[in-house]
Design a binder for these strands. Structure first.
Length: 550
RNA sequence: GCGCUCGUAGCUCAGCUGGAUAGAGCGUCGGACUUCGAAUCCGCAGGUCGCAGGUUCGAAUCCUGCCGGGCGCACCA
């Protein structure tokens, strides 16, 4: 609809230029917006004000010229008006709206687009260390990454979802030590369990399960063995918890494999040759400062051990080598200091830092009975993702995580998430789906209308302002999805679904669908059938169910 | 101290990338079920968009400075 208007306006301006009514042939991008207030039209444009400078004319004068021409055309526009400082407002005829209603029904992929043009994007998210179960914060990153991925692929991108496993380095060794000491404990040995080890009870559980006799092995070997075992087991938990949460990955990428395949050494060598690395005090440094970072960073420590940064450089180079046009990382906001470094690494190895985006997820705090649930990272006392999903369900948890922009912190209220009322946004939306399903069933049983289909009289029957409001909202669905993809902002979808649901409930309470007038009945069924489809379409996008009954 | 980020109704948050009279939800108060699912809806009240400048036809949005919260500043991960 908007693009039709843009074309229309463009033509009119071209014509005016040709006729010499406008001095400059320079036409800026035409921006169409939907005013908040009905009296300002269905759509409006600020083009006259934008053009004022280049044309060196008063905005209202330019608006006058466009107005004269456009008003004399036979088009989708009913009336046009000039308002305020030079806005041009358009009031559309009813029939164009009905067209979009038809689209919803007939286009199986309503809202889907090929905007991405098959561009290959990799989204890497969660990537939590396999040293303990996922907690609530990971859940938010998981849903955001997952939803962003499906929205991108809905918009024509070729998306791969990846989980990076930090299965190498010191924290894995610590994990091994933690397990080893717990085993010693359980075998009656006096152990002073180190403070830097993982305190959680899950280590004790693992200790009971490990069947290999590690007591008879030399300590270092035993710790290695424990580390391998524990990280493997914990990764299984993580994968399973994520699956229950509706999150799956196309690829699980092991950090250790980078070392095993020599990729870390290779990229270090490569950077050395390029003169990007230098030695200082026995360590190897990357001159990230030249790339805009605050200071240079160590890649290989003086003891010969590589830092995480080293493997991350190799990893991201490898991503681009795999042929991704664009790489997106979803990180916790506490890692923001790492972005400049990563950009430097990518620029130095692949010259692709422009194709690299980081989505920073803000913190989640959990609320129970209005009180914040305290979570001590050290103490090992934290609420796991699994606990939350078990308690409130997958749908509610996913929706809740998407009710905020990812970069604003989120209060997750367990009571609200469990509530079956309009307080709980996911029920509010799902209720619409169930309600419409019920009405359609009733129409079939009691009114004998078995089929919802297009009928030529529908445009004449759907005239209520609540009906037009619903159609307008549905019309904006594809654009909303696209904006959500462009900005990597899945919360737009949840907000949209709430708005659409609100409009439906509003309509429902004011107008009856199951009326005696058969034409009106069939028309209204056609309308609410479309609403049902769009609701399901949006919930599918977020991998949230659309129940027929609740 | 330096850097990043946020500051919008009592609370939790949106705000279409610079547009017209800044919007939702929750909460308060008052209404609506003999009628398609009241798990719903309607109405009232609630604002110096942290403060002060600047950019221009026009600023919650962009720039600068201050105030206040969060986070980050390792040869850690």
């Amino acid at each position: 609809m908007k693009s039709k208007l843009v074309d229309l306006i463009k033509n009119v301006i071209d014509e005016a230029c040709d006729e010499g009514l406008l001095p400059s042939k320079e036409i800026p991008d035409i921006n169409i917006e939907t005013p908040k207030i009905d009296t300002q039209g269905d759509f409006s444009t600020n083009i006259a004000m934008v053009m004022a400078k280049t044309q060196r004319m008063a905005p209202r004068k330019i608006a006058d010229i466009i107005y004269e021409k456009i008003n004399n055309l036979d088009s989708i526009i009913e009336t046009t008006e000039i308002a305020g400082p030079g806005f041009i407002n358009f009031f559309l005829k009813k029939t164009p709206w009905i067209e979009t209603l038809k689209n919803v029904h007939e286009d199986e992929n309503f809202g889907r687009s090929d905007f991405g043009n098959g561009e290959k994007i990799q989204v890497e998210f969660v990537s939590a260390n396999p040293t303990g179960p996922l907690h609530v914060g990971h859940g938010r990153g998981a849903v955001v990454g997952d939803a962003v991925s499906s929205i991108l692929s809905f918009c024509g991108y070729d998306v791969q979802k990846e989980y990076y496993i930090n299965d190498s380095g010191r924290q894995i060794n610590t994990l091994g030590r933690s397990l080893y000491y717990r085993i010693l404990e359980q075998n009656g040995k006096e152990v002073d369990f180190p403070e830097d080890c993982y305190q959680g009870d899950y280590i004790k559980d693992l200790a009971k399960e490990l069947e290999t006799d590690v007591l008879s092995i030399e300590e270092n070997q035993a710790v290695d063995l424990c580390a391998k075992y524990a990280s493997k087991e914990i990764l299984k938990w993580i994968a399973s918890d994520l699956k229950d949460f509706g999150v799956t990955f196309d690829n699980w990428f092991s950090e250790q494999s980078l070392y095993d395949n020599g990729l870390v050494d290779e990229s270090i060598k490569d950077l050395k040759n390029k003169g990007i690395l230098y030695e200082k005090e026995d360590a190897l440094w990357f001159n990230t400062e030249k790339y805009g970072d605050e200071k240079d960073r160590v890649v290989v420590r003086s003891n010969g051990v590589t830092t995480y940064f080293a493997s991350d450089i190799a990893y991201h180079k490898e991503k681009f080598d795999r042929g991704f046009d664009r790489v997106i990382d979803v990180w916790g906001a506490d890692h923001h200091g790492y972005i400049a470094r990563m950009n430097a690494g990518i620029e130095a190895t692949s010259k692709k830092s422009d194709n690299f985006d980081v989505v920073l997820i803000q913190l989640v705090s959990l609320l129970r009975d209005g009180q914040q649930v305290q979570m001590g990272k050290r103490s090992g006392k934290f609420v796991t993702l699994k606990d939350v999903v078990d308690e409130v369900g997958k749908d509610a948890a996913r929706f809740m995580f998407l009710t905020r922009h990812y970069e604003s912190s989120l209060e997750f209220d367990l009571e609200v998430a469990k509530e079956k009322s309009s307080n709980n946004p996911v029920f509010y939306v799902q209720y619409v789906h169930a309600r419409i399903t019920s009405i359609i069933e009733k129409a079939s049983d009691e009114k004998d209308v078995k089929e919802i289909k297009w009928l030529d009289y529908i445009p004449q029957k759907l005239v209520e302002k609540e009906e037009i409001a619903l159609i307008k909202k549905m019309e904006s669905y594809p654009e909303m999805v696209l904006e959500s993809a462009k900005n990597l902002e899945p919360h737009r979808v949840t907000f949209y679904l709430r708005d659409l649901s609100k409009l439906f409930h509003n309509y429902y309470n004011k107008h009856k669908v199951l009326v005696d007038d058969e034409e009106l009945l069939r028309s209204r069924l056609y309308l609410i059938g479309a609403v049902k489809k769009v609701i399901k379409n949006g919930l599918d996008l977020l991998n949230i169910s659309s129940p027929e009954k609740m």
